[in-house]
Design a binder for these strands. Sequence first.
DNA 1: GCGGCTAGTAAACGAGCGTATACTCGCCGA
DNA 2: TCGGCGAGTATACGCTCGTTTACTAGCCGC
Lengths: 190, 190
Amino acid sequence: MEAQLTDARPRDRAATRQRLLEAARMLFGEYGYEQVTVRMIASAAGANIALVGRYFGSKAGLFGEVLAGEPTVRAVVEGDRAGLPRRLAEYAAERMSHDPESPILRSLERSAGDPEIQALVRDRLQAVLIEPIEALLGGPDAHARARMATAVFLGIGSVRRLVGPETPSPADVDRLTAVFELCLGLEPLP
Amino acid sequence: MEAQLTDARPRDRAATRQRLLEAARMLFGEYGYEQVTVRMIASAAGANIALVGRYFGSKAGLFGEVLAGEPTVRAVVEGDRAGLPRRLAEYAAERMSHDPESPILRSLERSAGDPEIQALVRDRLQAVLIEPIEALLGGPDAHARARMATAVFLGIGSVRRLVGPETPSPADVDRLTAVFELCLGLEPLP
DNA sequence: GCGGCTAGTAAACGAGCGTATACTCGCCGA
DNA sequence: TCGGCGAGTATACGCTCGTTTACTAGCCGC
């Protein structure tokens, strides 16, 4: 009887690449760009260090690909305009008590230093949060309002990360909803 | 005529220490903890690298002393309760367009990685922002409200840092004031 | 005048990083 | 059967970091 009952072939470029990508996604999200070494990634993926360079060019290239491959927070931002504050508030409330699942958001919180990485993160933040909100809002100062809502959103993550998670009460979520309504210049729902 | 007209004596332990401290304050504020090397600090202070270790124990020790020596944002947090949202909003608006002068706030934005540094920054954030606001507010959920206001405050800095500065309009400041009133659970001023 | 305390210096250490190189080995088509 | 292509490997390179060590030299009390 031959071994290799599973379909996981050895020497499978695509599969190894994928394992590296997923290990990187997990580690970058957990610890931030600069705290994660390529050795950690390779080790977590059960692959060789040199393969990071071979498959992604560099550590930054790998990070970029992780960011690009994210499904993002689109579910929150897409949807009807009136419900946006509530959806933002509920998502933000989730982030008061738990680390985000999305490497983008985690990276936004944790990856500060490297200018190249900052540029990647910035572009992504614009693309997945600020611009969609701005488009949904419309109006003359939509950009400023989208920016402010994004600020609240990010700040909640910063506070959790810095001073620890805390479970929000229902009243907190309501207050947060009102805050987002105010930021976005939308009327409260009846 | 002898040289040394100034009162800056050479071989002055206290003065050298002070120069190192001020160079560190400036650099940490500008670039964040991990981006600044002890060589940069020593060079900016015109001192030898080894003196950082001698006078402050370590880079982290120096950072801790920089944080501890900060005058902080006390002016905003101290004062009457009713005016707090406005003061917060004005200070936050300032931070929309300019980098903060305070190394604490800058470090809050930029120093993410090292756990020891994170602990220092967290303690400082609690001491200078969350706890004073909480004390000023009073009431049952004062902590949650102080946390939320702090989140908005920090988030604004994050957005400026990530996507660039933007000068707020007077309407933005008004909206921000309302946001802080909401966060803090205070009534709007007449 | 001189010995010792001490501020300041130069240089190196060891570790960790991202990256690059030279290699091994197994599979597959001819 | 065999040659080569390519996935995967082991290792080292060059660099920068924080830290430490051994040393130099100036001031002060005696």
